[in-house]
Nucleic acid binder design. Structure first.
Lengths: 206, 206
DNA sequence: GTTAGCATGTAAGGAGTTACATGATTTT
DNA sequence: AAAATCATGTAACTCCTTACATGCTAAC
């Protein structure tokens, strides 16, 4: 059990992308930043060391399947190819499933949520729901504490500080509404699935 | 020129708060996190070393002005008081003005913007405007690149990824609208001030 | 008198960036 | 053949957090 901690976020993102299709590092980084859009961006300085480590742990391997195209550019036995295409190993796929099944704080805190959400397509329905609910209650906690702080200090705040807090609150409130919608949809889906599965319509727990 | 780089964000926040009123570290941290609300939070592990360094640079000093209350708790000549109240020195005030006058990337990138905005009350009007405009164009760049990436890859995205990008885009668009409003107000104010100045009443150079 | 919270600090380390170094490939 | 951009990698450094260590002070 080489219980390893390699940031979590990057690992999940890399494994998730490589699961869809094998790629080399340079392309991986571009796809990564396109996928994460507004939420995050990684540099080569973090991506390559991560790949190196995943390789060392046997979660990914160099993909030699389409040598044909690379053989020309390859440098025989002497050294490195100019492109190194990585793909998941069986262990890597297992690890990915493990990461996708985690519905803890790492999945709903600011750093992790975007990445986990981006791979919801590969995530089990019940895990999706728990992550969405986890994030929602996390945000609601934050709302409460900021509202309380605001109420306490309202008088002695200048206009700009007030404006900042107002905008912050509204942003988070907006995200909560978004989450509510998503959660609603997930529950509907869940019910439909369960109904289809049984026949008429039994009950809906919750 | 001991051209020093101590993160910027924390330094500004500490100097800004201490300029309003002297405080000890523990209280400073609470005020800091209340002030920054949703945007950031600092732990003691970063605050105390920062205070230590600011002290070493002579930007802040221990404030012995209200000994009266502390004298009881103070431990005579032998050692530490239980509370260490810090205040700005003349150098510290100068440094604060320097930081508040900076209208560069550090002021409009994600990490810095919130803090700079929180101290807009102490910032010159022209600097405020440049920071707001800088942030706006930064966000617009981001919007463009994400929209472009979205247009390129729209077909092969699953629903969740699309949803994530959509929400991200809308959040940023919302912030841009907010900035537009603020910029509009700033310009109005600027004009009013200039009009007043040019004939009616003299000026108030802050 | 003991728990809870105020108050200060340090050491180790996590997570990532910047800047650099190097070379291959494509475009102009 | 020069310039751009693709591609891989490393070393040093930044900024911050966690966990620990310590003691005071107020409340119950």
């Amino acid at each position: 059990m080489a219980a390893n901690s390699r940031s979590g976020v990057l690992e999940l993102a890399v494994l998730g992308l490589l699961h869809e299709t094998p790629m080399h590092g340079y392309e991986l980084r571009k796809r990564l930043n396109a996928l994460l859009g507004m939420f995050r961006a990684f540099s080569y300085g973090s991506l390559y060391p991560c790949l190196k480590q995943l390789l060392a742990e046997g979660l990914i391997t160099e993909d030699d399947s389409d040598r044909s195209t690379d053989a020309v550019a390859g440098r025989g036995l002497s050294g490195r190819r100019s492109k190194i295409v990585y793909k998941l190993t069986a262990d890597g796929k297992e690890r990915l499933q493990e990461l996708l099944a985690q519905a803890g704080p790492s999945a709903w805190e600011d750093e992790g949520f975007g990445v986990h959400f981006a791979f919801f397509g590969q995530t089990r329905a019940d895990v999706r729901l728990r992550i969405l609910e986890g994030r929602r209650s996390r945000l609601e906690e934050r709302l409460e504490s900021v509202r309380a702080a605001l109420a306490r200090t309202r008088e002695r705040l200048d206009g700009y500080t007030l404006e900042l807090h107002q905008h912050g609150l509204e942003s988070v409130e907006r995200e909560v509404r978004w989450l509510n919608e998503l959660i609603g949809r997930e529950r509907e889906q869940g019910e439909t699935a369960r109904t289809d599965e049984s026949h008429g319509r039994p009950d809906d727990a919750r």
